[in-house]
């Protein structure tokens, strides 16, 4: 199954809802690491499910907050106000009294230092944890951006390749302002489409690219709803290209009334 088919299969939705078998879940865990577009799709589904959960939100009773707080361990900042010494008053003669006082003072000082260092230690490890997580996030951003940059480079290479023929598709009566560009590789016969200037398709609709070969439409595949630049199927001897708006997943033959753009080679 290719990425597009996986995205369109409904499996990712079930994945986010936790309704896949452990094996299927594992498979998608692996695939999303390799394919950023899969990962992005998963994030968007997550957002939808978050919104769905939000829409069912119910405020719990006020007293639950305190009840829960009692059950949790919080990190505490220690106040070094020890009053325990004041209560120790023992009757002791002469030097012992001073010795006892000195010992107590020493113990207080020692435990104070211990608490202090312990506190410092906790603070430092918290900061370290925070920095580590920031580092991970930055690393992820770098990874994402370098992926994006690779993608853009790839698109540029296709658009500027001498083997690529650029075909501008103009809006039809259905949508006069629409435009799209097809790049057609003369050597590999692969087609690419840039659909930036098409209106956003409704949730249950999707654009589909067609080539006209010998006067007949040939299906070149549906255009992903999530990225503007797409690699489509190969075709030889096309005389024109057109894009129609079809139900999700596309149709075997084009709906002529829903043709948005077309252009001759």
């Amino acid at each position: 199954m290719n990425i597009k088919e996986i995205i369109e299969s409904g499996s990712l939705e079930l994945y986010v809802m936790g309704a896949l078998t452990p094996e299927e879940t594992k498979e998608i865990d692996g695939l999303r690491k390799l394919h950023p577009e899969l990962n992005e799709e998963i994030h968007r589904i997550e957002d939808a499910m978050i919104a769905y959960a939000d829409s069912h939100a119910v405020k719990p009773k006020e007293e639950l907050k305190e009840k829960i707080a009692e059950k949790l361990n919080f990190s505490v900042k220690l106040d070094m106000e020890s009053e325990m010494v004041d209560s120790i008053s023992i009757q002791m003669p002469g030097i012992y009294r001073y010795a006892a006082a000195a010992s107590i003072a020493f113990i207080i000082a020692l435990s104070g230092t211990t608490f202090y260092f312990n506190y410092q230690y906790k603070e430092t490890s918290n900061q370290l944890a925070a920095l580590q997580s920031e580092k991970t996030q930055l690393a992820n951003q770098v990874k994402y951006l370098s992926g994006e940059s690779d993608r853009v480079k790839g698109e540029l290479a296709i658009a500027s390749s001498p083997a690529s023929k650029k075909i501008a598709l103009q809006g039809t009566k259905v949508s006069p302002d629409s435009k799209a560009v097809v790049y057609w590789d003369a050597a590999s016969h692969t087609t690419y489409v840039n659909s930036t200037n098409l209106p956003i398709a409704a949730a249950d609709k999707q654009y589909q690219l067609w080539a006209i070969v010998d006067g007949k439409p040939v299906d070149l595949g549906v255009i992903s709803k999530d990225s503007a630049f797409n690699t489509m199927k190969q075709v030889e001897n096309a005389t024109a290209f057109a894009i129609t708006l079809e139900p999700l997943g596309g149709k075997p033959t084009p709906t002529m009334e829903a043709m948005y753009v077309m252009g001759g080679v």
Binding site: I50, A53, D54, H56, A57, V58, K59, P60, L64, K65, I68, A69, L72, N73, F74, S75, N126, A129, A130, S133, E134
Partner: peptide, 25 residues
């Protein structure tokens, strides 16, 4: 980051913002 530190403030924020959705589910 705040949750990593386990502060009371982090809990309050967590609770105030997320408890309705969690409770709803």
């Amino acid at each position: 980051i705040e949750l990593k530190s386990k502060s009371k403030k982090a809990f309050e924020y967590l609770y105030d913002n997320y408890s309705p959705a969690l409770y709803g589910v």
